[in-house]
């Protein structure tokens, strides 16, 4: 564990908190992509299969990871529940049109081609890494379709993007300090994922400087 990894995870938790806060306080899930939330649900449930095999009390780090994994899984399930049930009437279905089956199929094909080892567990893990890299795309498309973005929604996406950017710092740190060299798959996908946010980051920082709401062109 290093400061970048810890800060990244804190931002991830903050982003989830902001998302739920937005939905709860405005009694609306307008501007939130159900498709992105659904993709994260798939990402977490395929990535964290090891919850079934790992003893949480194996070490302090495994315990920490287990708590976080359960938190991510349950919060994304809860978010989907809120969008599909309680605040269904506010869901912007017309604009949330990204064809996610292409993302899922593409990630599955990539996972079959690129993986660390040829085992079901490693292929499913690779699938989750590929899918996470592109899971934000429906959300970004939805924002572009609607243009105006509520502050709290833009903070949510900013935190989510920063979380993965900090993971890159964490990997650089570990490369030099712990000599971890065989992580090319996570590094490559994490970098692609962070680059997807680049455009958003630019407009977010611009809007924060001007003290205005984020407006995407």
């Amino acid at each position: 564990m290093n400061i970048f990894r810890l800060a990244a995870d804190v931002l991830h938790v903050v982003s989830i908190f902001l998302l739920l806060l937005k939905i709860k306080t405005s009694h609306s899930c307008a501007g939130i992509s159900l498709k992105t939330q659904f993709l994260y649900m798939i990402v977490f449930s395929t990535r964290y299969l090891d919850l079934f095999f790992t003893k949480p009390w194996h070490s302090a780090l495994t315990f920490y990871n287990t708590i976080m994994k359960i938190l991510f899984l349950s919060s994304s399930a809860y978010t989907i529940y809120l969008i599909r049930n309680r605040y269904k009437h506010t869901y912007d279905k017309v604009h949330d049109t990204f064809r996610i089956h292409y993302l899922i199929a593409g990630s599955a094909v990539l996972a079959l081609v690129f993986h660390i080892r040829l085992t079901p567990f490693e292929i499913i893990w690779a699938f989750s890494v590929f899918l996470e890299a592109v899971a934000i795309m429906p959300q970004l498309l939805l924002l572009q379709e609607t243009g105006q973005v509520e502050n709290i929604t833009s903070h949510y996406i900013f935190c989510l993007g920063s979380y993965r950017a900090l993971y890159i710092c964490n990997w650089i740190w570990r490369y030099f300090m712990e000599h971890r060299r065989n992580q090319w798959l996570a590094w490559a996908c994490g970098t692609v994922q962070t680059l997807l946010y680049a455009d958003f980051f630019y407009y977010y920082i611009l809007s924060q400087r001007q003290g205005k709401k984020l407006r995407l062109p």
Partner: peptide, 10 residues
């Protein structure tokens, strides 16, 4: 590293 070391991130 071994398996447990490789999958120690979220």
């Amino acid at each position: 590293g071994d398996d447990s070391e490789e999958k120690d991130e979220l």
